[in-house]
Nucleic acid binder design. Sequence first.
DNA 1: GTACAGATTGAG
DNA 2: TCAATCTGTACT
Length: 208
Amino acid sequence: MKREDFKNTKTIKGKRLSRSFFVRPDKDKTYGERSVKIAESLIGKFVVRRIGRKKIFGRIVEVEVYAGPKDRAAHSFGGKVTPRNKVMYQRGGHAYVYLVYGMHWQMNLVTGNEGEPQCVLLRALEVPEGGRIASGPGKLCRYLRLNKSFHGEDVTSSRRLWLEDRGEKIDLKDIVRAKRIGIDYAGPYWSSRRWRFYLKDSPAVSRR
DNA sequence: GTACAGATTGAG
DNA sequence: TCAATCTGTACT
């Protein structure tokens, strides 16, 4: 998306993604397939962060699925519940924000029904300023000024953080499906599972 | 209590 | 290649 296009998006009235976007009927037998669908449909949507009268926003170009309790890479693996990950067990539409490596925040969106820990990690945004300042999960949170206070935020009702559909239709063939990043510890099966999705040709994707 | 790895990043 | 730096987990 070019810089001029972002000027247009400022005047576009975006439609907030509601609960039904994050909590979907459980038709799929495969655990995590619902989150895969949600991950794909998040590509091209906008994250909006309001600070006073100012809005910071970006277009989602890269996400990853984490679907416990079977997923060895997910914090919910084995059905574990900790003070940190318990938000994952809430119904979809909540933000799961946590600190990695003691210095970087990451934001996930919970995508399961209540009691089914699934989420989608937001990894990269295209932003009006251009460049790669929100290209990576830690950089994305820094750009949006997200921290622990957003842990558990309900993005379907929050006044300071939400998701928007601005009418863009993304063709599925423009979405690349790849292995997740940084989870080699999860073993060959889970680390090779193609649960990372990014927009083909976007310069803002964290790694090619 | 201690030890250690980790859904990362930026500098060298 | 490596260090920064905090949280959860698996031990003693």
